[in-house]
Amino acid sequence: MNAKTADKIATGVIYAISGIVALILIAMLAFILVRGVPHLSWHFLTSPAKAFEAGGGIGIQLFNSFYLLILAMIISFPIALGAAIYLNEYARKGKFTTIVRTAIEILSSLPSVVVGLFGFLLFVVKFHFGFSILSGAVALTLFNLPLLTRSIETSLAQIPNLQREAGSALGLSRWETVIHVILPAAVPSIVTGVVLSAGRVFGEAAALIYTAGQSAPALNFADWNPFNISSPLNPMRPAETLAVHIWKINSEGIMPDVSAVSAGASAVLIIVVLLFNFSARKIGARLHQKLTSA
């Protein structure tokens, strides 16, 4: 076999493998969307779930998912940003840095159900947070932190050292250079990373089953006082999210239209995650363009 034939065969095999990967994704998406999209309606997206009768929606679960996501991001982003700045801009090779890096790697490889159980024992039971949005948000933070830190660190590392040299040659301190030069230049890729990780957090179920709970009490969407128990903003109320809801009704749902609700909820979940993914790229590219042109 000559080199040319070998190359042709290798190219063909590689194309086939990539094609299979794309095909699996497309088949899965098509299956979920074809089954689920017909059940979607404004009513389904906004009304509360029903446990025993048909016609329930996913309104509260959808709201819970977004609320938890936002809270988890508010907690994890500053911590991840700080850790990433330390690791990429300040850390020198040494024992401490190695320990931090190893910790982040191990944390990122923990199965999310373990994070959930840990959250249950520590926050729900020990700290008496109960099954609550707060417990859920903290568990999601643990789940999200290592991934977000790594992604921000990568974004910072992509900024060429020339920029840091430029800063120090102008008499700027390292802190001034990081805050005013490196971070702004890294914003497009940081935003992409944050939105992608938001997609992951949005679809997370295992870490939430034992922390944010599996019930979605009725909410009064006219009451925005976070201290009232029926207020959507109350962080101490249990909050079943969309992903947890799908898991729950598939394992123990007894409403007559359980398969329709499950299919519809799955479709919504997939659509939202896809939206996050596509918008991440779009927003990143747009920000980058804004920074580099006009």
Partner: peptide
């Protein structure tokens, strides 16, 4: 050193303007 570098400036091999 930050103050000193304002008196002794430096320009590098590759142009390195800020993303500003």
């Amino acid at each position: 050193v930050y103050e000193m570098r304002r008196h002794i400036g430096m320009v590098f091999q590759r142009p390195n303007p800020f993303a500003k």
